[in-house]
């Protein structure tokens, strides 16, 4: 009798052990499988960098570092430089940020401080929904609606007033058909505005209520609370949000291609047509062969590097803000 109970105990023990062993194995398997899937992103990143670089190699080896500041784009002679499209990319994105950041800041302040509480949610949701509108819609709007209006009501009057002025006059020269660097910048500003505003509002909301209320308790005005409490507290996050917007603006294709004018020469004024890296890719990739093809990959590689750096800084700044949340 004793021996049988011992026996069954032993059996039960080994059964439990078997189950535990099996579960351990399954768990290890589950861990590895999910890890494998999460590595897909890293593999994609590596793949992007390697495949772009390999395809761009002929261009890089032919022009070397000169490629970065070489002002030439001659498909027939096979002479290519990235300067024209880099300048166009940075100028259009820069104009976009100059216009969009103050507006986004104003919107974020309005949504977090002055807006009546019952309006906050609907307006906030509207801003977020607009950030989701596909960029090609902004491009079409720019080409068909904005460009004619811009030409008639902004370019022509600005040119007649400012053209003769010394120092700044040259900025406003050129044809006034509504397409060009400035128009691309404005359309990009339309596009990144809801995005930057939404990020800024989220960051502003991180400010502890107790800090805000203490400031109000000391008799601060709303504006002073924003300027001297909220803004310093969320500084890094705000800059991070702006950089996120910049990253989007630099890499944007559709909103820019429709309105930038697609001319492969250096812009001579804010109104003159130009081109950006993304729009060169969209326009010329279909017909590219040989060195031209490799050069387009080289441009893609440059664009990826630029945006990757900008976005990394943005991410780092936003991470630091969120970490200080526990204050």
């Amino acid at each position: 009798m004793n021996t049988t109970s011992d026996h069954s105990q032993q059996n039960a023990k080994s059964a439990v052990l078997a189950v535990a062993k099996r579960q351990l194995l399954q768990d290890a398997l589950f861990h590895r499988v999910t890890q494998l899937f999460s590595l897909v992103v890293l593999v994609a990143l590596l793949g992007i960098i390697i495949s772009l670089f390999v395809n761009a190699l002929p261009t890089f080896s032919k022009f070397g570092f000169k490629f970065l500041w070489y002002v030439e784009w001659d498909i027939i002679k096979g002479e290519f430089g990235a300067a024209i499209s880099i300048v166009g990319t940075i100028l259009s994105a820069g104009i976009a940020m100059i216009l969009a950041v103050p507006l986004a800041f104003g919107i974020a302040v309005f949504l977090t401080e002055t807006c009546p509480v019952w309006l906050r949610r609907p307006l906030g949701t509207a801003v977020e929904l607009l950030a989701a509108v596909p960029s090609i819609i902004y491009g079409m709007f720019g080409l068909f609606v904005f460009a004619p209006v811009f030409s008639e009501f902004l370019q022509v009057p600005l040119q007649s007033v400012l053209m003769g002025m010394p120092i700044v006059g040259w900025l406003f020269g050129g044809a006034t058909n509504g397409l060009g660097i400035m128009a691309a910048g404005i359309i990009l500003a339309f596009m990144v505005l809801p995005f930057v505003a939404a990020v800024m509002r989220d960051v502003f909301e991180i400010t502890p209520v107790i800090l805000r209320e203490s400031a109000y308790g000391l008799g601060c005005t709303t504006w002073e609370v924003v300027r001297k409490v909220v803004l310093p507290y969320t500084q890094k996050g705000v800059i991070g949000g702006v950089m996120l917007g910049l990253g989007r603006a630099l890499g944007e294709t559709m909103a820019v291609t429709f309105v930038i004018g697609n001319a492969n020469r250096l812009p001579t004024s804010l109104f003159s047509p130009g081109t950006s890296i993304a729009s060169v890719l969209a326009n010329e990739f279909g017909e590219a062969e040989g060195l031209h093809f490799n050069t387009l990959f080289a441009l893609g590689f440059l664009l990826f590097c630029i945006t990757f750096i900008v976005l990394s800084i943005a991410k780092w700044l936003i991470n630091r803000t969120e970490k200080s949340k526990g204050l």
Partner: peptide
């Protein structure tokens, strides 16, 4: 690695989509 993956994922969220197109073309 997970921390790194998380940050790379966040960056890929805003990476220029045209470059992803180039990559898949290649």
């Amino acid at each position: 690695t997970a921390e790194f993956t998380r940050n790379v994922t966040d960056i890929m969220l805003s990476a220029p989509s045209i470059v992803l197109g180039l990559f898949v073309y290649a």
